[in-house]
Amino acid sequence: MSVGLAARGVVFAYPGGRPVLDGVDLEVAPGRVTALLGPNGAGKSTLFRVLAGLLAPSAGRVTLGGRALGVIPARERARQLALVLDPPALSFAWTAFELVLMGRAPHLSGGRFESADDRAHALRSLEAVDAAHLADRVYPTLSAGERQRVLIARALCQDTPVVLMDEPTSHLDPAHALRLAGLLRELAGQGRAVACVLHDLALAARTADEVVLLSGQRVFAAGPPRAVLTSDNLRAVYGVTARWVDGDPAALVVDGLAPAGPARQ
């Protein structure tokens, strides 16, 4: 399962605009949880979409398992790379279980139907996000947090070596956010490469093996959380004061706005 995702010199600009990403290098390694952090407008979401293959970089390249992402056939890519995006609105009465089961689609050839194994897989995926009791609920009746967990289960059901999540905790309560952190560690423990865009610095600090801190369309710093999420870096990038509190695990506490605000490059 040792497939990783890597970006080399990635530049991205919307037509006629200035670059939103300007020479980004990063590695989403197997067996590791990588957190993508950065203030609003730093290019996190664009980087996520480029890594996910939803946007083609203007320059540079993204590789999945050593192959250029853009040349991998769609179905093959779908068996290697799963995405968790912001929960969409659905017009039809799909149940949570049916949506999770859609994660099996890339593994089914031709007109084959999902097997009993596939259905068991879907149920296990729902259990992993504490949502088994939602299986028969109709998606439009779920709360935002419940929807988010169902869509995370859908990505788990895809059973891919690489998993990318865009703000997977944005609608979750603290208990479910911590459970998700545990799940991310578990996925990495299985040898998967996991990357998340996160806003919650404390959650990133306790969960991630690697942190990529974006600022001004570039990677400002990358490495282990304690090395990257330093009070100097956080003041420069976010304009906040923060400190680490020793313990098991060590915790990052963001305690206020820095007097001078973020440094502007």
């Binding site: 939803l54 769609a74 779908a78 969409p88 689609a105 890339p106 869509l151």
Partner: peptide, 20 residues
């Protein structure tokens, strides 16, 4: 039919599941 099912999840997620 299967592609239409996946499209319910939104274009981007459908793409990530191998549908164009």
């Amino acid at each position: 039919a299967r592609g239409l099912n996946l499209l319910a999840l939104g274009d981007d997620t459908a793409r990530s599941l191998g549908v164009s």
